[in-house]
């Protein structure tokens, strides 16, 4: 394998990491609050707003049911508005982020809903405000679940980032298609796949370790 090819692989790995990191960060920053809201805005809940809850739930479902590659091309005007261009790695971050927000939101919603309602009641009985309940009880208690949710999000993002070659986003997936498949270079394809596998393994085991560390619910002694 020539030095050029190796340089390409390194560059593509960097692009993938860049896209995953930025989309993961922004997507989580927006997705976690959305997930908390979805979990607490039902009828009779902390921030009861049943209609807003229903509308947001529908939007989340719509976004999640749109195939990612269709989402990428469907929001090109929006991408151009935000990133100034509709092609390239930075532009690819826009659809990746848009796909990440509802993904994170649903997973966080599930994690929050698993928190014992008795804890919310206890906090209310102590005179906690709704925001104190969110930060001191819900997010604190759901931390293992949210950590697992974000791990899953990053793993999925690594996969999604392989599709943005369609709009010139680059990255490992793009490299695999253009060199490995279209130029008949199976060794490049193999390296791409191995690098992806290693990335996913690293993220997954780090996430698992972190989640375990946060989880104080039962510790074998």
């Amino acid at each position: 394998m020539s030095a050029d090819i190796i340089a390409l692989i390194v560059k593509a790995t960097g692009q993938t990491l860049y896209m995953v990191a930025v989309a993961g960060l922004i997507g989580s920053l927006l997705g976690i609050p959305l997930g908390v809201f979805l979990a607490t805005s039902g009828r009779g809940e902390l921030f009861a707003a049943p209609w807003v809850n229903k509308v947001l739930g529908a939007v989340v479902n719509a976004t999640r049911s749109t195939p990612f590659i269709i989402l990428v091309v469907a929001i090109i005007p929006f991408t151009r508005l935000v990133a100034g261009t509709s092609i390239g790695t930075t532009a690819a971050i826009v659809p990746l982020t848009i796909a990440t927000i509802p993904f994170v939101a649903r997973l966080v919603e599930t994690a929050i809903r698993e928190v014992d309602p008795g804890l919310t009641e206890a906090a209310r009985a102590m005179g906690a405000s709704p925001m104190q309940i969110v930060f001191k009880v819900l997010l604190a208690e759901a931390r293992p679940g949210i950590t697992s949710a974000l791990t899953l999000t990053i793993v999925s993002l690594i996969g999604y980032a392989a599709m943005v070659g369609a709009i010139g986003g680059g990255g490992l997936g793009d490299l695999g298609i253009r060199y490995g498949y279209q130029r008949f270079m199976p060794d490049v394809m193999a390296v791409v796949v191995v690098v992806l596998i290693v990335l996913v393994q690293l993220v997954q085991s780090a996430g698992d370790r972190l989640a375990r560390q946060f989880d104080k619910r039962s510790r074998p002694r």
Partner: peptide
């Protein structure tokens, strides 16, 4: 005001309702 009054009323529960993370 209700929150202020609640701080002067303690409550204990059947299932304790302790935060597992603390």
């Amino acid at each position: 005001n209700l929150r202020a009054v609640r701080r002067s009323i303690g409550m204990i529960f059947q299932h304790f309702n302790l935060l597992s993370s603390r």
